[in-house]
Design a protein around this nucleic acid. Structure first.
Lengths: 176, 176
DNA sequence: CGATATTAGTTTGATGTTCAACCAATGGAA
DNA sequence: TTCCATTGGTTGAACATCAAACTAATATCG
């Protein structure tokens, strides 16, 4: 992963002090929050990728695979995948290319609209998704370093932020 | 950015339902938490990058520049930068290469240890850091879509997670 | 002292993300 | 029907990240 030496202080707390010291007090909390999210993302993505190493897929590929596996027919237009995962169409092309190369997905033409391409999960794709999920659940999701209550707090607060950013529109009803 | 269409439901809440439906109840909260962090990261990084467009630097480059600007002498060994920003040495090389190419930083040899290279922020680097910070503060950090209390909650909970992941060791004293 | 281990950076290769440009198909309007 | 805007997807260019391999310099140990 990175330079994995534990620091003897909290670099975000120090950045916060620096911000306040320079008079940017209104921005300091936001800066700390944004930086915290960035760091949390680094840490969690690292653990997820490590758990996925045996399966030779990345988290982006795993997400696409799971999304397909949750649909009724196991297939979805590439555009829909991009909307659901909130990534650029070019990213979808890339991820589906790689999944297709490994035989976990195949591209099939849309029956009605010639512009549209469907990604369909294969038998082996389902098998992989199942094994990868079991591993992710036990290695990462069941022990994130936070208790259930704090996790729920995190989910709720971020849901508020996502809603305010236009990520989705529904009430979200706390998700628990 | 991505496919910026607002969804009419919360995809994370739906993933959570899917997890529970399949009996992965112990993993569901962690999955929701991890996915929430990933999404929050996407959103915030997108806004940060947008705010930095006029300055032609990325957030990674901005972070390195600010780190240097906060040091006494305006310089730091590349390895230290990697430790502080928690990124791979190869990433540091990359980021410093680009900053150096734009004249915001110069590489100078370490006086005592020939292995070590110091990155030193230049006059124009300081000027840029200052302008970029003003813009980031006003465009992003001062309005993240969350009130101060929620932001502090986020920072505190993530600090707990980071500490448990070995990110740092000090007590962190709530950072407020 | 000399062999070995450790540390610092760089290079290379794989993957992911975005944006911009582009092509093909669709659909609405004149 | 013909023109043109929109939609869906791909491609290429930038930039970021990591892992692994490699070079160079320093440190340690027998």
């Amino acid at each position: 992963m990175a330079s994995r030496r534990t620091l003897s202080f909290d670099p975000i707390a120090e950045a916060n002090r620096n911000w306040i010291e320079r008079g940017w007090t209104d921005a300091a909390p936001g800066m700390s929050m944004v930086t915290s999210i960035m760091r949390a993302h680094q840490i969690l993505l690292g653990r997820v990728h490590q758990a996925l190493v045996p399966f030779d897929i990345t988290f982006a590929q795993y997400e696409a695979l799971m999304l397909l596996s949750f649909t009724k027919r196991g297939q979805l237009p590439l555009g829909k995948i991009g909307q659901r995962l909130q990534v650029h169409p070019a990213s979808v092309t890339n991820v589906i290319d790689r999944l297709e190369g490994k035989g976990f997905v195949i591209r099939i033409p849309h029956p009605d609209d010639q512009r549209t391409t469907l990604a369909a999960i294969t038998r082996s794709g389902r098998g992989l998704a199942s094994k990868a999920t079991a591993r992710l659940n036990s290695e990462v999701f069941e022990d994130t370093g936070l208790d259930a209550e704090r996790q729920q707090d995190l989910v709720d607060v971020i849901a508020a932020m996502r809603r305010s950013a236009g990520d989705f529109a529904e009430p979200s009803q706390s998700n628990s």
